[in-house]
Amino acid sequence: MEKKVKNFGYSVTRDRQIDFDANNHDVGKIVALAEPTLHLCISCGTCSATCTASQFTEFSLRQVILLVRRGETKGLLKEVSKCMLCGKCQLVCPRNVSTRNLIIQISRALCNHEVSGSAMLKP
């Protein structure tokens, strides 16, 4: 039976709060296994400051890394696709994060997650 829904002229507002417990952390775990330098990021922003894509779009590798760590992966694949893999971020990172591979691994995990509902890589 379809539920009757009344129109009040307003509705429940989407909660902005990051609900860490409710989020899925698979992508973060898989990426960390594939590219352990993920752990080393200190959110300094050097990568996004030098990034070509960051100058003209909202793309920020610093934020992408944080979103992966917090399990906030909804809509992230589109974000990551803005990277052109030029490698400039890797040159400047003070913690030697392997940023190019990180982007590739994040994309891969997100693709798998989107296609199969799991971030696990198929053999």
Partner: peptide, 9 residues
């Protein structure tokens, strides 16, 4: 009225 969703939430 348009803001009431905030109150409701």
């Amino acid at each position: 009225q348009a803001n009431r969703g905030f109150s409701l939430s």
